[in-house]
Amino acid sequence: MKPFGYVAAKDSEHAVALLAEYGQGAKVLAGGTDLLADMKFTPHPPPEVVVDISRAADLKGIALTDAGLRIGALTTHSEIVHSAVVHQVAPALADAAVVIGAVQTRNLGTIGGNLMTCVPSMDSGPTLLAFEALVTIAGPSGRRTIPLSDLFVAPRKTSLAVGELLVEVIVPKANLYKPTAFQKFGLRKGQALALVNAAASFWTSEGLFSEPRIALGAVAPTVIRAPKAEAYLSGRPVSEEAMAEAGRIAATEAKPITDFRASADYRRDLVAVLVKRALAGAWDRATPNQKELAS
């Protein structure tokens, strides 16, 4: 690796102060799995200083708060996989976390880091979008909370300004327990990058889809929602055919590229299948009560 400076932040406040001090020259290290892999073989010059926030205790932890499920940005994927709270109120988050990288990277990599890399194939994004998650951002002028969807701008580019820091992810209280499922398809089963991933959630009201949310990864410059497919489902009776059709509509909303991993056409085919399966998975998670009403 090329030489760089290093400084460790004690907490988020300290981190923000350090980011303010170094400005453009700073890179944030959370788990480090992406940052180090990037810095090792990049032809670009190294950052002036790496701000290591991995010891900032206030950025860690999973808790139920008045706002909903609060996941500190430094929470590792493994912690999400093993969290009893997550399994209770939003198990799809664990489904998405357990297929990220391998055990070793899940033990280091963090949810905040995964979101901040802002690569379209990230596995944390779709489920959180389906939950309509919010993110809290700390900066020199205080904290603000924005929808997660506003974080993503372009591949490897978020809406955060220089000096700002992602501190937490919140699944709003209203969406806890919402039946949600995640699907991923890669070139192999273990340690795979997503060719396509998808998450879907919906409530049912008298047997009809209500507030359906569909999110797709790796098929657009950022993780995206599929509003047309959502609109199609909304108010429609729950059925396998509707789920399949929603998948087909989502496929038309995806804007995948052809690269060496897969063609755009194949990715569209996968979107249709994965959305259908995610919807079916969410339906599996719906309470018997909801299902009874639907039948």
């Binding site: 290093y6 460790a8 290290l29 480090g32 799995t33 180090l36 892999a37 790496v50 290591d52 991995s54 493994s78 055990v103 070793q104 990277t105 033990n107 280091l108």
Partner: peptide
């Protein structure tokens, strides 16, 4: 207690 890739962790971490 956790298995990690030593190549993806700074000694400082």
């Amino acid at each position: 207690g956790k298995a990690v890739n030593a190549c993806l962790m700074l000694a400082a971490q």
